[in-house]
């Protein structure tokens, strides 16, 4: 009757129909992702005229321009901020995920929804809510004044940028860590306690290695997007300390220096690949430790 029950249950034998159905998605990925990225990869080596126009040809001048201290400073600052944000989000995300995963089963979905609500709320709304909270005359400043501290406004400030970056990416960190933690057998914790392991040992030897996949996703999902953020430095940092994202937007929309912008985009892309590789490495190490954990037990 039907060939579906042959080799793998539920899977219909390969046919033209299956590949035909993949065609639209493949067209989107090839035409709107792969080809455009190849075009900017090529543009990053193009010669630009004095006005920033694309003259074609081949040069390394765009990449050489990026070695300028102005760009290096922004790149260094962005990497630092992205790394800081990824680490803070992952550590705080770990604490929150552990808290949720160790609550009773009926409470867990409720707590998770409490993380989902800010996550799905409009990104810009989440950002300007911090201006309301920390800005002049806002509740935070009023509180400080009531306590006798003479404060004007915390916007713009480095603190506001750091807090709103954490706020923007924390939920993204919680989900994968929680997903990994949910599959950890709770009896492992009891066993560790019975064997005399303290809090620190229980986490270092059991929970952290066993949720390594979630932690790696968390780092990756917070590090890369932070590099591309351009709204937060402008709105909460006053635009004084731009991130790479700000530079790319400025190069493309204001300076119209396409080749230079393309070169900077390639640098971000390379950083992305490096972080994916880093996360992969982290995972491999995690897996190795899990195996040795299995041997011990």
């Amino acid at each position: 009757m039907n060939a579906s029950s042959s080799a793998r249950p539920g899977r219909i034998a390969p046919s033209a129909a299956g590949y035909l159905m993949l065609l639209p998605a493949l067209a989107v990925i090839v035409l709107l992702v792969i080809v455009p990225m190849l075009v900017i990869a090529r543009d990053s080596f193009a010669i630009s005229d004095p006005l920033g126009g694309n003259l074609g040809g081949f040069t390394l001048a765009n990449y050489e321009k990026l070695i300028d201290p102005v760009y290096l400073k922004t790149l260094g600052y962005s990497l630092g901020m992205a790394l800081l944000n990824a680490v803070v989000c992952t550590v705080v995300g770990y604490i929150v995920a552990y808290y949720i995963a160790t609550r009773r089963a009926s409470l867990q979905p409720v707590l998770l929804v409490l993380v989902i609500i800010p996550f799905l709320t409009d990104f810009l709304v989440r950002t300007f809510a911090w201006i309301t909270l920390l800005g002049s005359g806002g509740p935070f400043i009023s509180l400080l004044r009531a306590l006798g501290v003479d404060a004007q406004s915390l916007v713009p400030s480095q603190l506001a940028v750091t807090l709103s970056l954490l706020y923007a990416f924390l939920p993204v960190a919680v989900f994968p860590i929680y997903a990994a933690m949910r599959s950890i057998d709770p009896s492992l914790k009891e066993a560790a306690a019975d064997l005399g392991a303290g809090w620190w040992q229980t986490h270092a030897r059991i929970f952290v290695p066993l949720s390594a996949s979630g932690l790696a996703s968390s780092v990756m999902l917070t590090f890369v997007p932070t590099l591309g953020v351009f709204v937060i430095p402008v709105l909460l940092g006053g635009g004084k300390d731009p991130l790479v994202g700000n530079l790319i937007v400025t190069l493309f929309t204001e300076f119209r220096n396409e080749p230079l912008g393309a070169a900077l985009s390639m640098v971000v892309l390379i950083l992305m690949l490096a972080s994916v590789a880093g996360a992969g490495l982290l995972l491999r190490n995690g897996a190795r430790r899990n195996r040795s954990l299995g041997k011990d037990a």
């Binding site: 998605a25 493949l26 990925i29 709107l32 992702v33 792969i34 080809v35 455009p36 990225m37 075009v39 900017i40 543009d43 990756m220 890369v224 997007p225 590099l227 591309g228 351009f230 994202g245 790319i248 937007v249 493309f252 396409e258 912008g261 393309a262 985009s265 971000v268 892309l269 992305m272 994916v276």
Partner: peptide, 21 residues
């Protein structure tokens, strides 16, 4: 893997490459 590419590539790179194309 191919379908997940847009989730990993920084959005800003996707944006500028689309604009260029």
């Amino acid at each position: 893997g191919a379908i997940l590419i847009p989730l990993i590539v920084p959005e800003i790179v996707l944006g500028v490459s689309l604009l260029t194309v």
